[in-house]
């Protein structure tokens, strides 16, 4: 289930603008990797290239390769739709489908791949996914209400349940807690710790305490100035990044001396 990600010399362009330059890093399976850095440094962009979601923006393309257990996601003939079915994503703001019930939201991705699924299997999957997202006990009696009726933190966990229902190889999280209160944030962080047993997780966060709490390794991205491409400055064990980084600008950033 969990796969290894290898990014080799990745450049990302939005039309003529080069947003990210020369990123290379390896992400181990069953680990949590945090992407940190100032706004506009390209960390979300790099995250989105891992499931080819950057292509939603017209004119965006990449140069370089991303290997998922050795298979190039950008090889010729690779359908981005299939890439996204293997690599789940959780967004900044909770985005359950407003017209669907909680149950339908969880099943949304699965039913895309597999229309014929018995009611019993569906029930099992809904329960398993919601349990996996620590949401089952809160919603088990009201699976028929719209997903938008839940609180923000519950909605975000519903989105995580929706993402893990399709049994992805990798789970990408783009600032999953930035719209949540501290209690809900804690719930999500605990959940990330559990999900790590099964999935390769990459998380973008602006919250450095969060990065140090949840991640095994941390990648620090920075940008030389507006209009310049973002670059990967340092990638190392999280403990090392936050205690004894080898690059000066990393130390300045994590200690809050610039921002």
């Amino acid at each position: 289930m969990s796969k290894r990600i290898e990014i080799n010399d990745l450049d990302v362009y939005y039309g003529a603008f080069k947003a990210v330059e020369g990123v290379s890093l390896e992400i181990e399976p069953r680990s949590v990797t945090a992407f940190i850095g100032p706004s506009g440094c390209g960390k979300s962009t790099v995250l989105r290239t891992i499931n080819r979601m950057h292509e939603v923006i017209a004119g965006a393309y990449v140069d370089g390769e991303i290997l998922l257990d050795g298979a190039n996601l950008y090889g010729s003939g690779v359908d981005p739709v299939n890439v996204r079915r293997q690599i789940g994503m959780v967004f900044q703001r909770p985005n359950p489908f407003p017209t669907m019930t909680i149950r339908e939201n969880v099943l949304a991705g699965v039913l895309l791949n597999n229309r014929r699924m018995s009611k019993g299997d569906q029930d099992d999957l809904v329960e398993r996914s919601l349990r996996g997202a620590n949401l089952w006990n809160e919603v088990k009696d009201r699976l028929g209400i719209p997903g938008s009726g839940l609180s923000g933190g519950q909605q975000q966990r519903l989105c995580i349940a929706r993402a893990i229902a399709v049994s992805p190889d990798v789970l990408l999280m783009d600032e999953p807690c930035s719209a949540l209160d501290p209690i809900s944030t804690l719930a999500i962080e605990d959940l990330i710790e559990e999900l790590k047993q099964e999935y390769t997780i990459v998380i973008v966060t602006h919250n450095m305490q969060q990065a140090s709490r949840v991640s095994d390794k941390t990648a620090f991205f920075n940008i030389a100035g507006t209009g310049k491409p973002g670059k990967l400055i340092e990638y190392d064990e999280t403990t090392r990044i936050f205690s004894n980084p080898s690059v000066q600008s990393t130390e300045d950033y994590v200690s809050g001396r610039f921002g």
């Binding site: 996204r84 967004f91 985005n95 489908f97 993402a163």
Partner: peptide, 12 residues
């Protein structure tokens, strides 16, 4: 957000 949610699930 809703459009991206479905695309990220692998919707055509």
């Amino acid at each position: 957000l809703n459009e991206e949610a479905s695309l990220a699930l692998g919707a055509t």
